[in-house]
Design a protein around this nucleic acid. Structure first.
Length: 574
RNA sequence: GCCUUCGUAGCUUAAUGGAUAAAGCAGAGCUCUUCUAAGGCUUUGAUGUAGGUUCGAUUCCUACCGAGGGCACCA
């Protein structure tokens, strides 16, 4: 890599100036923020001059001279700037070779072998049966899917899993309401799975209200909870089976639209055995202890707070079940890394859990990482599925799609094609709006502003691809063939950032931060749009046209690869 | 009360301790006889407050102010 070449060039020059490698402080070789500052920049002179008490700019100049004498074939210019930075400018030949490399590698450009041969299990989305699939789940899905695809580009095998709560009080609350509305059931069952699930979700809201406001209802629901758990009542079993089935059907529909293929769905009901086993082991080994009839972990000894793993009725809580899930995952898949993606409201809870897992199964804990993403919230406050003030995933997708179809009204396309394109653009718009910002932060959700089609947006990136494709079609028609020989030096800034794609992928993966990729692609699309607007790319009479066509082709490759990593598809037209 | 995340332009967001703090939206003004104007170009505008560490702080430390999340039997 060119970056390593520059680093060793600097070290070599420093050696000739009498600095031994072991004396060198850590220094950076990075892309400057602005293209006008060169392609790479180092702060080594700044740091070193301070150490040996010399003027930074003077020292930088002598170092730059030394580097210049050593010469590298890829560097066209070296200069000292600002407080003592040394800036490197790369040659046209270098950019030509990169453009060529991108087209040669095609779909593989951007991939690396850092995790080759490894197995990574990624858990995300995690919708609960009997409750709505809301926009928070879209957020988890978008971040999880992008993370999975990026890790995949590192050469690791990915096992995608989702985990849902199919047992517990929320189910009892739902069934409590449905039992009171038995006469509606027959007609509800004729509706779509998403409408059926909405019926259940609404039942859950009503059940929750009853649980909190009517004492008799609370008793009834608690009893119902036990009945469901024991599976003794045929009618209730039937309702439970129905609710679970429509939930899963609806989730599958959404996963399909989101192009997410889970290898397995874990359910709370299936991890209870492992949970109880792990908890008992914890008790025997003195990791967990009894207190007020419950089984708890004293977090205060670890600078955390106390958590209940099994309640005083002997029922394992979420904590124990998650522990069981961790054990089960490692038994089923002998993974090298386990990534769990949830809302950041669970950050503290996962800290406790990982400490317990570390005491119980240190080898599993070392491979497990929890990533808490921000929440989607309204300007007015938090969404709560318990209160029913949620925007469902499906309604968001449909509303966005409607807006896109409205925008496409004038396009000459069959209705079928329009619908297909609109679907791709919809998912792209939603995904991008989530992935453009750092994963830990909340998204303040404003319907009109959050899902945008203009400026920094998914459609903007997709649109740049569509334009590039139509240029390449025209180039073919006019028989302008791509060529990697630049005729004119000043073609476009595009070539100065396009070769950076693999570095960006690497950073996004290492830091579990897909937004670096989203932001980079936006910058890339913006440079392409400028390039596009500057003048004709395909022009038989223009001697620079063949290289421009090559650059367009390289751009399309990188943009498609990048969008694919974000889980965003590219339509042929839009 | 304790723990934790955060506070950047009118709004929504960027910025491994580095150069003139970067974008989009909104506002003002241009721009389609071209390969799709879901575009391009120009322009107005910001680091909560007070200290500290550093050659250099949006970034690290302390206090304060403000917001979110968590803190015993929900998930």
């Amino acid at each position: 890599m060119i970056k390593d070449d520059i680093s060793s060039l600097i070290s070599k020059a420093l050696a000739e100036l009498g600095f031994e490698a072991k004396d060198l402080p850590a220094f950076s070789v990075e892309h400057p923020d602005e293209l006008s500052h060169g392609d790479y920049s180092t702060n080594v002179a700044l740091i070193l001059a301070r150490k040996i008490k010399q003027n930074p700019v003077e020292f930088a100049k002598s170092l730059a001279d030394k580097i210049d004498q050593l010469k590298s074939k890829d560097i066209s210019k070296i200069e000292v700037a600002g407080p003592g930075f040394i800036n490197f400018y790369l040659t046209d030949k270098f950019f030509e070779s990169q453009t060529k490399e991108i087209i040669k590698k095609g779909k593989k450009f951007g991939q690396n072998k850092i995790l080759k041969g490894q197995k990574t299990i990624v858990e995300y989305t995690d919708p609960n049966p009997f409750k709505e699939f809301h926009i928070g789940h879209l957020m988890s899905n978008s971040i999880g899917e992008a993370t999975s695809r990026i890790i995949e580009a590192f050469g690791s095998k990915i096992i995608r899993v989702s985990y849902g709560g199919d047992v517990g009080l929320h189910v009892a609350k739902s069934i409590y309401t449905v039992l009171k509305r038995k006469d509606e059931v027959a007609s509800i069952k004729k509706l779509s799975s998403s409408q059926q699930l909405s019926f259940w979700a609404k039942s859950y809201v009503d059940g929750s209200t009853a649980y909190e406001t009517i004492p008799e209802a609370k008793i009834e629901i608690d009893n119902l909870n036990r009945t469901i758990f024991e599976g003794a009542d045929k009618e209730i079993n039937k309702l439970y089976a129905w609710g679970r089935k429509v939930s899963i059907e609806h989730f599958q529909e959404i996963f399909k639209r989101l192009d997410t293929k889970f290898k397995r769905n874990f359910w709370e009901s299936e991890v209870i055995t492992d949970a109880l086993k792990a908890v008992n082991e914890g008790l025997e080994r003195g990791i967990l202890e009894k207190s007020e009839g419950a089984l708890i972990f004293k977090g205060e000894n670890h600078n955390l707070h106390t958590r209940v793993f099994v309640n005083s009725k002997g029922v394992p809580t979420y904590e124990a079940k998650e522990l069981g899930l961790g054990v089960k995952k490692s038994k089923l898949y002998n993974f090298d890394k386990s990534v769990i993606i949830t809302g950041n409201e669970q950050n503290d809870y996962f800290k406790v859990l990982l400490v317990v897992l570390g005491l119980l199964r240190p080898q599993v804990k070392d491979k497990t990482i929890h990533i808490g993403h921000g929440m989607l919230r309204f300007t007015s406050g938090k969404m709560s599925s318990r209160k029913g003030n949620v925007i469902t995933g499906i309604s968001l997708l449909e509303q966005v799609k409607e807006n896109i179809l409205e925008k496409m009204k004038e396009r000459e396309m069959s209705d079928k094609d329009k619908a297909e394109v609109a679907e791709i653009v919809t998912v792209g718009a939603v995904r991008y709006s989530i992935l453009k910002q750092a994963p830990g932060g909340d998204i303040i959700f404003d319907f009109d502003k959050s899902i945008s089609f203009e400026g920094d947006s998914g459609p903007y990136l997709q649109y740049s691809c569509v334009r590039a494709m139509s240029i390449l079609v025209k180039a073919k028609e006019e028989k302008v063939k791509a060529n990697f020989q630049k005729v004119n030096s000043d073609i476009s800034n595009l070539e100065k950032i396009i070769y950076r794609f693999p570095e960006i992928v690497e950073r996004a993966g290492k830091e579990y931060a897909p937004h670096y990729l989203a932001l980079y692609l936006t910058q890339l699309a913006s440079e392409f749009s400028t390039f596009y607007a500057q003048g004709k790319i395909v022009d038989k009479t223009d001697s620079t046209s063949p290289y421009k066509v090559a650059l367009t082709s390289a751009f399309l490759t990188v943009m498609q690869n990048g969008l694919n990593l974000l889980g965003i598809k590219v339509p042929k037209r839009m």
